[in-house]
Amino acid sequence: MRKIVFMLAVSLDGFFETLDGSIDWHRVDDELHRHMNADLAAMGAFLEGRRTYELMEEFWPNADQDSSIPASMAEFAEIWRGTPKVVYSRTLESVGPNATIVRDVVVDEVLALKASASGDLVVGGPDLASTFRRLGLVDEYRVYVQPVLLGRGRPWLQPEDDKTDLDLVETRVFGNGVVLLRYRVGG
C-alpha cells in the first residue's frame, strides 16, 4: 500500500527555518542530495502548501540549465519537473505545468489519490503536514536532523492535543553530520 510521507530538515532544537524564513543553514551536500533524489524520484506526487510550492517553483524548474550546479541538483530539477504536484491553496490562481490546485484537504480525496498514485506521496511544508497529521493522513516521518541549534525559528510541527506513537524503522548518519530519523506511524 502507498504511504504518505512527511520529509523535512530540522535543526536539533526543532526548527525548520529561522524567524526570517531562512534555510541557508541546511547542510545538503552531494551525498545527501543523491539520497534524497533516490527517495523523491520514486514518489507518485508532491503534496505541497502554497508557500512551499512557490519556493520550489522559483528555483527548480530551470535549475539544470545552469551548467555550474552539481549533477545531483540537476537531477533533482528533472525529478521536480516530472513529478505531479498537488498544491493546497485557497489563494493561488494558477500553477505551473504538472501541478494542480486543490482548495481544501479532504480526507476521502487524499485517500483516493493515495490509492491511485504510482508511488508514495510526499507532503512538503510543515503547515500542510500539520493538517495532514491532525487528520491522521501521515504514514511516515523522515526527519533530517541538521547539526545546528538555531535558538529560535518556526517549529516543524504545530502543537496537537493527540499523541501519535511512532516506530523507528531507519536511521542513517551522513558524512556532513545530518542524521535521518525515519519513523512509521505505529500504535
Results as ranks from 00 to 15, higher is better:
112 A>I: 11
31 E>C: 07
149 L>P: 04
92 L>G: 09
34 R>W: 04
122 V>A: 08
185 V>G: 05
16 F>A: 09
34 R>M: 01
29 D>N: 15
154 R>H: 12
175 G>M: 01
149 L>F: 13
184 R>L: 14
50 R>T: 06
147 P>V: 09
42 A>H: 05
118 S>T: 14
129 A>R: 02
185 V>E: 05
85 K>F: 08
108 D>P: 00
60 W>R: 03
90 R>T: 14
178 V>Y: 09
80 W>K: 10
145 V>I: 13
124 G>D: 00
1 M>Y: 05
24 D>V: 12
149 L>V: 14
177 G>F: 03
9 A>N: 13
175 G>R: 07
127 D>S: 15
75 E>C: 01
64 D>S: 06
37 N>G: 00
1 M>H: 10
5 V>T: 10
74 A>K: 15
159 P>L: 01
83 T>N: 00
92 L>P: 12
72 S>K: 00
100 T>E: 14
64 D>F: 04
45 A>F: 04
91 T>R: 05
44 G>R: 02
161 D>Q: 10
146 Q>R: 09
84 P>Y: 03
43 M>K: 04
25 W>Y: 05
44 G>S: 00
57 E>V: 11
72 S>L: 05
113 L>H: 13
153 G>W: 06
24 D>Y: 08
55 L>K: 04
112 A>C: 08
51 R>W: 04
19 L>N: 11
29 D>I: 15
18 T>V: 06
76 F>Y: 14
184 R>Q: 12
129 A>D: 00
46 F>K: 09
80 W>I: 11
182 R>T: 14
